[in-house]
Design a protein around this nucleic acid. Structure first.
Lengths: 241, 241
DNA sequence: CGCGTCTTTGAGTCGCTTCAATGTCTGTGG
DNA sequence: CCACAGACATTGAAGCGACTCAAAGACGCG
């Protein structure tokens, strides 16, 4: 399996794939709780997450915090801030993590050399944008139960894709406060919501593990489903570099 | 002024700029209320909005609706769905509009021919992604007053950039129901919130016009400000095609 | 003028928050 | 091995912000 998730839309040509692997192989480790990059820091590179869990968040002026995404191995982190003079999001390790730093300069070279890389990277960014759109819709329209059900199913699907969970549940290092800041509710209410899901027989909890007891009911709680992504769209530039 | 807003990060090389202008010049008109594209439709092109106001929205299974963005002339619409097999968002004309259809194929050609176009388009997508991140934070963390203040100031800034508003206010065709669906609240509460802003002397309303009476107070209500965007980052491929 | 659409206002309810106390788990040192 | 501390989770009670339902008011248009 690749160290990054840039080939989910299309296979890259050998040249760019090799260059990426090369950069991705040089990893830095951070302990749990470390801030990899803070909101407001100069943004000079993006990050390939190789191991561990990372959360990206934005803080408001008065300290309220909104997590944007829980990142899993293979994710490219921090790329929205390439368009900014200073980083918009804080990247924080939830577990011990292993991360490769890829300077914007390298991305620029890859785009310059390989149109196919450029298009593939663009698609993966659009995919993240679509994910944000769904999350915006759910924060704007959904109740606490709906948000929690969405979160559990979405995280589970992504963990499955990363081979980090079995079919009926997953282990997670997330504290309820972090889940709350992801879903736009208070920690107290996150606890109540999870407790209620458990009391109603949809999930079980032990230690950090969540087990799904009634996936159908959870899905029924989710107000929307994401349509399938394209692979190899016909307009994609063919590989050459 | 250009028919699109792809050159806010960097000037394009003559070849791609010309090709774009050419496509952008062939416009279709839609009456107010028309659906330009519906959620679930096949996604085969993106849209350059030349004239008028458009809203992009996602609907949940039970009919609740979340507007993603109010689009103004110069905006590129519908590009998130390039990554999907079916469109994720509905595009709806708020006024009579004039729109150019640009097939994905053309974008593919441009990316293939001009790395500089590819990088510039990527940056503009990242910019939209950052905007979504802020909106997610505000929906997740902000009160109704904060959301409304953010909306008014953000829309005003964007109207100013498009030369569609003067310094102290703007005209808008938006109904309160649409504002409500953008900010994740009910129309009734949108009305109360606007009325309260007016009673407290921050804004005035007459017809569709909003006038700012106390911009400082409005800004103070906003929980966050977007950092400046980059222009011509040094890693951007130089023009050639 | 009269009609339809949009907005405002009021009263009651519900969901989530707040504050504070209690409970649980884990690791640590006596 | 047990006692204790600290961090996290749970629970209860009270309050508030936003929602719902419903009616009345304003506006635009024929």
């Amino acid at each position: 399996m690749s160290l990054h998730r840039l080939e989910e839309f299309a296979t890259l040509c050998a040249g760019s794939a090799d260059l990426l692997e090369n950069w991705a192989s040089e990893q830095v480790r951070y302990p749990a709780g470390a801030k990899i990059r803070k909101q407001g820091d100069p943004a000079t590179c993006v990050y390939f997450l190789a191991e561990g869990w990372v959360g990206s968040s934005m803080s408001l002026a008065d300290g309220r915090r909104q997590f944007m995404k829980i990142h899993l191995p293979g994710d490219v982190l921090g790329s929205p801030s390439m368009s900014l003079s200073a980083a918009a999001e804080t990247l924080e390790a939830f577990t011990e993590v292993s991360i490769a730093h890829v300077p914007h300069r390298v991305l620029g070279q890859l785009i310059d050399k390989s149109p196919r890389f450029a298009a593939t990277f663009l698609l993966s960014v659009q995919k993240e944008r679509v994910a944000l759109m769904y999350e915006k819709a759910i924060l704007g329209q959904g109740s606490a139960m709906e948000r929690m059900a969405w979160f559990l199913l979405d995280l589970h699907a992504r963990l499955r894709a990363a081979d980090m969970a079995d079919e009926d549940g997953f282990d997670s290092p997330l504290k309820q406060e972090q889940i709350a800041d992801l879903l736009g509710m208070t920690p107290v209410h996150a606890s109540r919501t999870l407790t209620r899901l458990q009391r109603e027989g949809l999930i079980e909890r032990r230690r950090g593990r969540i087990t799904f007891c009634d996936v159908a009911a959870l899905r029924a709680l989710c107000p929307c489903t994401v349509p399938p992504f394209v692979t190899e769209p016909d307009w994609l530039p063919k590989g050459s570099a």
